[in-house]
Design a protein around this nucleic acid. Structure first.
Lengths: 235, 235
DNA sequence: TGGTTGATATCGCAA
DNA sequence: TTGCGATGTCAACCA
């Protein structure tokens, strides 16, 4: 059977259920609970009805009525423990580094569901930043006439550059790609790389490649003497 | 009843179920499905068994066996539609701006669950960056002897500064706070602000306030003539 | 393991 | 709505 289910179970039933399926299936609990988190930060979520999701890789998600993000969570690699204490079901998830503890305390579980989920997934995604770089590498004229791409992912002490090349006059060019509208941060990032390569005797050009740029980012770009080339990842 | 459930339902049953509860409850489906996404990027996820979560605010999450992140999703505000086509159940979620479409196609739903979840949640979180700024504002000596905080969240054309103050000699100081180890980005950010306030006649100091700093970020900080003050958000 | 960056980032806030 | 930065960001990649 691809799923197992408990309706209106006792907390003891849920404890056994989680222990049985915790390592093999995705467990969903609809319950009333409070959630305490202590680690990089610290939080308390008062009692309420929510969805708790436990994955075999140790991921824990507490989902509320709204938002894409879980209200509390624990990332993969965390270690689960389940027990009864003072009439409550306690589900604890421990992460070692950084040390973080998530504690879900429940006096009522409405439904418990253990679902088999597929393992090897066939997922493909297009129009990433990496694809933009690939396209420019194969079609250098998208940047400008005479541009020669040299190397992708060039590592420097101050971060790695998306693409380095030479313009038609032989000047080095540093390119920073963004798949969405470029903002201030992208300009600062590019400036950091350009500064690193620039010497007294070697002028280095810097180009942001993106589908757009915000007005203030463009202002900063001009101030730094950098450039912008429009390119849409989807085009 | 705080939940409703369908076991081994027909697709027609699921269609009605989603239409009935889509606006009021969190719906969980354990199903075999494929997922097509087209919007800012584009992706295809081949058929497999997963968890689909539909929230009343329009959020959609497709969760796989692993990871904290959903393999596909749609953010709040998206609009749901459900229908049968060529013997399959099709769940479409449309986001207007940016235009994005998520399509879940299923030939088999194992379980459908509609869960009532709490509305007004009492959630508190401590040790955020904002709290660090508050603490320094009330205890300026945490930065250095004679430091005088002036204003938080100072808006500039190139971003907003966490805190501005004066040192004991009356020099302006720009402070950038990080709740975790400061990295290259934080240094570039601070440099951007310091550059903005610096004139020919006015030297401006810049300080990163964080529990730590990476070696390369420290190197860049020194290169720019900026400073680092250690402060743990939890201490 | 730590450092850096990308992401369909999401989210909240301010102009 | 757009812009900007924080996030317990997460996740991938590389040294």
């Amino acid at each position: 059977m691809v799923y197992d289910i408990l309706e209106n179970p006792t907390l003891k039933d849920v404890e056994r259920f989680v222990q049985e399926y915790g390592n093999s299936r995705v467990i969903l609990l609809h319950l009333n609970c409070r959630v305490d988190y202590d680690g990089r930060a610290k939080s308390v979520l008062d009692y309420g009805d929510r969805i708790l999701m436990l994955k075999p890789d140790g991921s824990v998600l507490v989902h509320s009525r709204e938002k894409r993000e879980p209200v509390n969570w624990q990332p993969p690699g965390s270690v689960l423990s389940v027990f009864l204490r003072e009439g409550n079901l306690v589900i604890k998830s421990l992460r070692r580094r950084p040390k973080e503890v998530l504690t879900v305390t429940s006096s009522k579980v409405y439904v418990a569901l253990a679902c088999e989920c597929s393992d090897g997934e066939n997922f493909t995604l297009w129009f990433s930043e990496a694809e933009m770089v690939d396209k420019v590498f194969d079609n250098p004229e998208l940047i400008e006439d005479g541009f020669k791409p040299l190397k992708r992912e060039v590592s420097t002490p101050f971060g790695s550059v998306d693409l380095i090349g030479l313009d038609k006059s032989g000047n080095p060019v540093v390119l920073e790609f963004k798949r969405a509208t470029a903002q201030l941060q992208a300009v600062s990032q590019l400036k950091r790389y350009v500064d690193y390569f620039t010497t007294n005797t070697q002028k280095v050009r810097g180009i942001i490649v993106a589908p757009g740029i915000t007005p203030s980012a463009l202002r900063l770009l001009r101030k730094y003497g950098l450039e912008f080339v429009r390119l849409d990842p989807r085009s």
